[in-house]
């Protein structure tokens, strides 16, 4: 079994300005590992969307990125309000974001669909009142 690299981040939910910091760092780390640019871009965008969601909807959370020989895995875990209807949330254009969030350039209802679009595998486990766990994988080969 080859070595798995792990990067862990605590995502601050109080500060919209710093949202995306973890994704920028992951992008840098993956560049250093010499992964193909297209893979790096897909991982970064998927994670960035997830991180933004965590900050605007869930008050922050934890992010882990595992790099194996086969794929890059992103695990996002929060203790936010949860998603009532995941199927509905996956539809492009559906959003529960406030006007304030839209004025910041987000909340167009593209976050979750984008995460799915840029990853090869995505699983959402969510319980209302408890939180949401999202697993995404981007295959390297």
């Amino acid at each position: 079994m080859s070595e798995i690299l792990n990067f862990h981040f605590d995502v601050d939910g109080d500060d919209f300005t710093s949202a995306g910091k973890a994704s920028v760092q992951v992008k840098k780390n993956l560049r250093q590992l010499g992964l193909p640019p297209e893979i790096i871009r897909r991982v970064s965008i998927a994670m960035y969307e997830g991180e933004i969601n965590m900050v605007i909807h869930a008050g922050g959370g934890k992010a882990d990125v595992n790099v194996t020989e086969e794929y890059v895995e992103i695990l996002l875990c929060d203790n936010g309000p949860g998603i009532k209807d995941v199927e509905q949330a996956m539809q492009e254009g559906f959003s529960t974001a406030t006007d304030n969030i839209r004025s910041l350039g987000f909340g167009a209802g593209m976050g979750l669909p984008n995460m799915k679009r840029y990853s090869d595998y995505m699983d959402i486990k969510s319980k209302v009142g408890e939180g949401t766990d999202i697993t995404m994988r981007v295959n390297i080969n």
Partner: peptide
């Protein structure tokens, strides 16, 4: 739009 996410978005999109 003027906030940090503009720069981060551009960074993500290369």
């Amino acid at each position: 739009l003027v906030n940090s996410q503009v720069i981060r978005t551009a960074e993500m999109m290369d």
